[in-house]
Design a protein around this nucleic acid. Structure first.
Lengths: 137, 137
DNA sequence: AGTTGATCTAGAGCGGACTCTACTTCGTAC
DNA sequence: GTACGAAGTAGAGTCCGCTCTAGATCAACT
């Protein structure tokens, strides 16, 4: 019989290249993250084995990027992902994990700020110095 | 002739262990930093080859610690150290280096703050949620 | 003289987060 | 069909900043 379905299902979703472009992650990093188990749900595949990401995959990745940018190690992101996957009932644990991270980030911010103060102090000292002893020669 | 000098010269200065204690760096890290050439001046040695640090070595190390804590890579610290060692005339370069670092730190602070905002938003969402659907039995 | 315990050097090893390689396969274009 | 780029896998390699090991030496104490 003659059914020639115009590529129905598999054409849906974003390729790994498109997701790389949108998120700023490399395709290598995307595959790496998947192997590390930090995607909320398994990525769908085409018949040929190609990954097809949904918009919500991209949103999840954006969260992962934020967590990484704020210094959360991959194992912690994995733990959080697992809680989300486990579904209803894990909310208190997720909250605890996020709160702990919040605390770490606040600490890091404070430390950075302290260092910045010192750097700025030194900058000011050099500026003063150079103002009084301009171009040497 | 009965001179029993009470350990005159070599007894001066801090041992590597003492410096480790004061700075919080490990003795390994101290030797590593020296190899990396980020000490302002060569550390003095006892007859037997043991390192003896001065107070100003410790001060310099404290600066290095601040620079590291604010994310300056070791090669940049080395560059700064070299400028300081080179002495008078390198002040403009040192200032430029510190200003560049200041800019990076400011950027990092902004990025961290953005991430923190998102984390705190999520924390708030979970808190709300758990307030309305308390302990799930 | 013997036993600690701290230090020395040179160099290997580690943990984290990717990044890259090698080689195969898919899908579309000509 | 064949040529090409994008994608697949498994696993090795890279970079950074230490950290640790091995084996020798040293200073002080008993």
């Amino acid at each position: 019989m003659d059914d020639t379905p115009p590529a129905p299902a598999p054409a849906t979703g974003l390729t790994i290249g498109q997701v790389a472009e949108r998120t700023g992650l490399s395709v290598h990093a995307l595959r790496f993250y998947e192997r590390e188990g930090i995607l909320a749900e398994p990525v769908r595949r085409t018949a040929g084995g190609g990954r097809r990401y949904t918009e919500s995959d991209v949103e999840w990745l954006n969260l992962c990027i934020v967590l990484r940018a704020s210094g959360m190690p991959i194992p912690d992101i994995r733990r959080y992902t697992e809680l989300v996957r486990a579904g209803v009932g894990t909310e208190p644990d997720r909250l605890a994990l996020l709160r702990a991270h919040e605390t770490r980030v606040l600490g890091r911010l404070a430390e950075l700020q302290r260092s910045l103060d010192i750097v700025q102090y030194k900058v000011a000292v050099y500026e003063d110095h150079l103002e009084q002893h301009p171009a040497p020669c």
